[in-house]
Amino acid sequence: MQVFSTFENNAFTELAITTLEKKGIKKEQIFIVPLDNRQESPKLFDTLHRSDGTTFIDIGLALATAFSVIGASIGFKFAWGPIYWGLIGAFLGFLLGFIIRLFTEVILKKKKRKLKGKHSEVIVIVECEKRFAELVENILWAHYAIGVAKVISGAE
């Protein structure tokens, strides 16, 4: 049986490995893989194949609606009339909303995007007998593993 777990790269990873060795798991049965973390910042705009769930047009559409109503209302007093001023208001409202959303995503949420959640930096794979699987899993959870999974190999 194999037990997979992910850890942040800290002292708890070393303590978990040491505890496993003290409980009878040999060094040859423990495999540790460091992960390469993303160096580039995440893409700001979505593609056809990937979406992060944020949109840039939500505030723009709301402001376009509001500004078009205001533009059409005051357009009766101006030379071009309510239709043109409604369209101008919609365009300006959408543009203002898009700029507001772009500013919040690029400037304000940039720091939050980097700090959000824990990041796996190390994968620990432990090959053990089925009777030790529960013990290994408990040890890994006790040493602050981010995630743990058990896989039954074909030989057992």
Rank of each mutant, 00 (worst) to 15 (best):
F31D: 11
A79K: 12
F98N: 12
P42G: 14
I70F: 09
F94I: 00
R38H: 13
Q29H: 13
L96F: 07
L96G: 02
L95S: 07
A66V: 15
P42R: 14
F45C: 10
F78I: 06
G24R: 05
D58P: 07
D52I: 10
V69D: 00
D36L: 15
T65F: 15
I25W: 00
L92K: 02
F76T: 12
L95T: 12
I100Y: 00
L92P: 01
Q29F: 14
Y84G: 11
S73L: 13
K26A: 14
Y84K: 10
L48V: 14
A66D: 06
I100R: 01
G93W: 00
I57C: 07
F56E: 00
F76D: 08
G71H: 08
I25T: 08
E28I: 11
L61F: 14
F67R: 00
F56H: 01
A72E: 02
P34S: 11
K43F: 11
W85Y: 12
F67P: 00
I32Q: 09
F67S: 01
L35M: 13
R38F: 10
I83E: 03
K26L: 15
P34H: 12
Y84V: 14
F98I: 10
A64R: 02
G97V: 04
E28M: 09
G71Q: 02
I32D: 05
G89R: 00
G24K: 07
T65I: 10
K26P: 06
G24P: 05
F76I: 11
I100V: 11
S51A: 11
